[in-house]
């Protein structure tokens, strides 16, 4: 079964290299690194729910670093963001509890439709 192992190691290497791109997207677009991290983690062997949860463990330190750079560059201030935090905290609890209950395929489709629609609207803004 060494063949399987080699493939897995290659997939993991692919995920490690891909993580640089995850960080790049996070720094460039201020979001979306997670969307890329989930498929990478799945390729590296995580199951779907594990991949979604692990992507947050990956994104958190990247967000902290990214946010620090944005603050240093004067693109944003702490007071710009503070108003959104309470609502976000409520949402985070709901979302984290929902993750282990909701059907995987539903999650994908609903979200996919939503972001396509938003992307189109933002393009023609």
């Amino acid at each position: 079964m060494t063949g399987v192992k080699i493939i897995n190691t290659q997939k993991k290497r692919f995920a490690y290299l891909g993580s640089v791109l995850v960080g790049f997207i996070n720094g460039l677009l201020g979001a979306g690194g997670g969307m890329l991290a989930v498929p990478l983690l799945e390729k590296a062997g995580a199951q779907q729910k594990q991949a979604h949860a692990t992507s947050i463990a990956l994104i958190l330190p990247l967000c902290i670093f990214s946010a620090t750079l944005y603050l240093i560059n004067g693109k944003v201030t702490l007071s710009d963001a503070v108003g959104y935090l309470p609502a976000g905290a409520v949402g985070a609890v709901i979302g984290a509890l929902l993750l282990s209950r909701i059907k995987d395929s539903w999650l994908r489709k609903i979200f996919a439709l939503f972001i396509i629609w938003s992307g189109v609207r933002m393009w023609f803004r």
């Binding site: 997670g34 979604h52 947050i56 409520v90 985070a92 709901i94 979302g95 999650l107 979200f111």
Partner: peptide, 19 residues
């Protein structure tokens, strides 16, 4: 917007986009 992106973000499907 805050709650929705918190929910989606916590699920690891890119809540950042929403906000």
């Amino acid at each position: 917007a805050g709650i929705l992106s918190g929910i989606i973000g916590a699920m690891g499907i890119g809540g950042g986009g929403v906000l």
